[in-house]
Design a protein around this nucleic acid. Structure first.
Lengths: 186, 186, 186, 186
DNA sequence: CATGAATGAGTGTTCATTCAT
DNA sequence: CATGAATGAACACTCATTCAT
């Protein structure tokens, strides 16, 4: 396993465990079983490490969320797939350890990063654009539509993980329907 | 103005300006026009200060969001009032300086704090419970319903502040309608 | 004894003993019997400490070199006094620990520092200007004249301290005469 | 070009550019187009590299200063040649990159090095000894005489390079005469 | 009660040196 | 012989916390 990956894994692990601002470079080094100085062969400084990690995770996230979406036959199936993929990803803490809060707090390189993110989530954007084209979705801005349709998933999943709520499969189906109601024309 | 309040105000100001993890106790002391040691007469340590601040802000938030809700005649008006109150509060950075991200990152005392929060937001809970009682809202868990109806506001407001989107009054009306569609029975 | 002075003394001691670039802030702190962080209450950073030390020493140096010069009756006596003061100061390692090399290597704030130095050495400049006015000294630039008349003292004293040479009082008198010959008109 | 020479050249270049204490072994390796570990095949450690470089430069310096001195007809011409060679060498930063300060700060092996230096500067010593033999120079110790006659050149050249003074050819001739006056019998 | 000088463990980062390839 | 990835001790500097006044 190469050192860069070890360092990424260790950092993610530690942020998830201890919280973003309590992670020191020495801790990362120890967790990654690497000397302190070695990190600096792969990353310019702490901020660079965190920025690159944020990018890395965003890409993983894009992969998870969009997995199999294009194979779904109908628009509603595609939306449901996006929804369920997001839900599953959020609950699988082993595969994507950071919470949304921690992720949002990572430093970002706003210039090029947002551009790359748009590209990474192009399947998702296409679903929503197609929905509007077919007059099935409300004629709102892409970002607004996506927020209405998928933002609640993240929030619900967080609450599920924290034990605030416990959704069974029926409740999940209801939640999906509710989000669909929010974005679709009646 | 008493010292405790000065310290709160200074801390909030500094977090909003500089970011949560770049605020030192000395900065807080200076901004609050108080000696460094004095902070420790009112708060056990930094974490305690932040936890109490988080509580303090949550209470202010409850006041803002629920302001005038009970005076609204209809359920829909009440919901719309909640939504617009939240939106306005989020955009008024002067009155509630922290961003949601910064707020979420504050340490919390999960035990007693969530209990107090439920009480503080009792008007809000009542609106949603009343909606379910009247069979106007879907028969979902309180937390789920609130998430579906109001979480998108926070997210949209954040994007508005960051300049990702720019909603005019028509777009806001549309967004409110979409959230209403998500939670109401058709 | 105040902390600032302790830190100055410790730094000077350590530079003299170990060499300029082998002195760490922790060593200074230990030697000064002060905590590491305390240094930063008195100096912005290491460079600031060294710059201020350089200034401090330059002032001490000015005091030593010019001591009693104005009380001497004749120009030659004044010059001899300058020369002997310099010599004595250089040999008294206890009072002024740094070597010239180490001193020269200290960081300087060229803007204001050279100005202050000129003022600190005004007695010295006056001697050389008076010498030129009386047509006893060669009509050369101040800096050149001072270099010719006094620079050899520093170099000779350094060699004396290192044991390369051993000058008795006759040899010193000869050296003074030689320097006088360099600058005076014949 | 052999590796040892490459490393010397790279080190000298870097010290001149960046300053003695800001030169790392990696920078030397990169500049010398050599792997970091390779340096340690030719030098025991950093100090050894610097010590050997100091020796190397001292030899170059001896060559520069004594160039053509023996061909001069008279004692005064020989002295003047030494003086001008030194002056020129100090101003030609391209050929001998280190400043005197940087050079003096290099580590030295006092035992054998001074012996070798005496040999390297034997032409210079001979001039001064011959001057004393002819009763043209004052009967002082070699080291003292050399200091009186040539040390001011280094100091003046340093000031010239720093822009403190600007000597034209007449001023240089005057300075040479002054140094001659310092060492010669009247 | 309030102060603020002092503390010292901890931070992110550098770099001389080693050693498996 | 040469390489350069890896090391880890050391560095300059910060800051939450204490305590004599």
């Amino acid at each position: 396993m190469d050192k860069r990956t070890q360092i990424f894994a260790a950092t993610e692990q530690l942020i998830a465990t201890r919280g973003l601002d309590k992670v020191s470079m020495h801790q990362v080094a120890t967790q990654a079983q690497v000397a302190a100085g070695t990190i600096y062969r792969y990353f310019n400084d702490k901020e660079d490490l965190l920025r690159q990690l944020s990018m890395h995770l965003m890409m993983q996230c894009a992969t998870h969320i969009q997995q199999g979406v294009k194979d779904e036959p109908t628009l509603k199936d595609q939306f449901e797939r996006l929804w369920r993929n997001t839900w599953t990803m959020m609950l699988q803490r082993d595969h994507l350890l950071l919470s949304r809060d921690q992720f949002d707090a990572l430093p970002r390189d706003d210039q090029s990063q947002t551009q790359q993110e748009r590209e990474a989530f192009s399947d998702l954007y296409q679903v929503f654009q197609e929905g509007k084209r077919q007059k099935r979705f409300k004629p709102l801005d892409d970002e607004v539509l996506i927020t209405l349709g998928l933002e609640p998933v993240f929030c619900l999943a967080r609450k599920q993980v924290r034990g605030v709520i416990t959704l069974d499969s029926y409740a999940i189906a209801d939640a999906i329907q509710a989000c669909w109601d929010a974005i679709s024309l009646h």
